[in-house]
């Protein structure tokens, strides 16, 4: 029996889709069967980030409206079998998906897959409700900016009302080390303190992420880039491993900071 995790943020453009693609890839690299679901009906792009756009024949709306079987709509990843994507529809709007339909799809996928990662649309309307309805857990993505922290806070409030197995966990994305040091960006500590939920990972703002997503190849495939390691660490933490937070720079003094974060999570 698998586990459904929704990736959400409230605000748009903080990296939900990138996070979904990369966590999914990283989990699949660890030999877990993973299915990614794009619930952003009308504005799909998870398939683009995964480089699977050309292979779409059926989508999630077709499944819900019973024009095809769930298995027919799933796209196997071109790189390895452990990863599948259920794409969103591009032609319908968000009202085409119902909460019952979503629940049914996720329940069916859980039989087959270890992890179902749901990419949530921005906003808090019906699309958000559809995305979270079948999820067991939630990961909230934010950037160290006031506006996105504010929206993340709102989303956490809404998620807490849902009866999920666990409280939501936090990913801080797009960290720019030099700005954080100079005090021009919110610090990780500050963000965690305001949102007061567990931190599951931090990801630095890396040019490689953009390059990789343009190529349709999630950055998590690359073994050495910092962002890739960050996503792999998040995947390991999802699996229950204890992994210290990545140091933001290479100086030795940072080790203490890392230890501090680590201690906070334990």
């Amino acid at each position: 029996m698998g586990e459904a995790i929704v990736i959400t943020s409230g605000k748009g453009g903080v990296g939900k889709t990138t996070t979904t693609a990369n966590i999914g890839t990283a989990l699949a690299l660890m030999d877990k069967k993973v299915c990614l679901i794009d619930t952003d009906i009308g504005l799909r792009n998870l398939d683009v980030v995964m480089g699977l756009e050309n292979r779409i024949i059926y989508d999630i709306v077709d499944v819900i409206e019973e024009r095809c079987k769930l298995k027919q709509a799933l796209i196997k990843d071109k790189r390895f079998d452990y990863l599948s994507v259920l794409p969103a529809a591009q032609t319908s709007d968000k009202s085409a998906v119902t909460t019952e339909g979503m629940k049914k799809i996720i329940a069916e996928l859980k039989q087959e897959y270890d992890y179902i990662i749901i990419d949530c649309p921005a906003g808090i309307e019906q699309g958000f409700q559809n995305a979270i309805v079948g999820a067991d857990k939630a990961i909230v993505v934010t950037t160290p900016e006031k506006s996105s922290v504010r929206d993340a806070d709102r989303i956490i409030g809404l998620l807490e009302k849902e009866e999920m197995a666990e409280p939501p966990r936090l990913v801080i994305n797009r960290i720019r080390n030099h700005m954080m040091k100079s005090g021009d960006m919110l610090e990780i500590d500050e963000v965690v303190q305001v949102l007061s939920i567990d931190l599951v990972g931090i990801v630095i703002d890396d040019d490689e992420v953009i390059k990789a997503s343009n190529k349709g190849e999630p950055v998590a495939f690359q073994p050495t880039t910092k962002a890739s390691i960050a996503y792999r660490n998040i995947a390991r933490r999802i699996l229950g491993e204890t992994v210290p937070l990545q140091s933001l720079d290479t100086e030795k003094g940072m080790m203490q900071k890392v230890k501090k974060f680590f201690g906070m999570r334990a």
Partner: peptide
């Protein structure tokens, strides 16, 4: 949290934060 309103009659003792 943001967007939430806590309304009580009488005095309120809140053990926790009020976020922006």
């Amino acid at each position: 949290r943001s967007g939430q309103v806590l309304h009580v009659t009488g005095d309120l003792l809140l053990l926790g934060d009020v976020n922006p």
